[in-house]
């Protein structure tokens, strides 16, 4: 909202968040909280768009990424275990649509 105000906007219409599948953030809870915190602010009735970022691990043996659902995973190619998470912990504001 500070960014929106500094850009001379009076209303926030849409907020786009990027949430990683291993960020620990539950999109449904985020939506619920979003409505509550936006009430009576310049973001009242703004839409919340959540972009899910699938988690990915780095396999040092294959020198390649693979998608994963956990913190420790077997590489689908070489079956080595990797815990080097490259993506999936995001909790970011991508952009804000204002008027």
């Amino acid at each position: 909202m500070d960014a929106a105000k500094s850009a001379g906007a009076t209303r926030v219409l849409k907020l786009r968040l990027r949430i990683g599948t291993l960020s620990g953030v539950v999109p449904e809870s985020m939506r619920f909280a979003f409505d509550v915190v936006c009430h009576d602010t310049m973001a009242q009735s703004a839409t919340l768009e959540i972009e899910t970022v699938p988690a990915a691990c780095w396999c040092a043996t294959c020198q390649a990424e693979f998608e994963c659902e956990n913190f420790f995973n077997e590489c689908p190619r070489c079956h080595d275990v990797s815990g080097e998470l490259r993506r999936g912990r995001e909790l970011e504001i991508a952009d804000v649509e204002t008027s």
Binding site: A7, A9, D95
Partner: peptide, 21 residues
């Protein structure tokens, strides 16, 4: 002063790309 701004202007998208943390 925002002379260059028209405050009734339409939609604009602000790219923030900032972590909430």
């Amino acid at each position: 002063s925002h002379e260059h701004h028209d405050h009734t202007h339409g939609k604009q998208t602000l790219n923030l790309n900032r972590s909430l943390m």
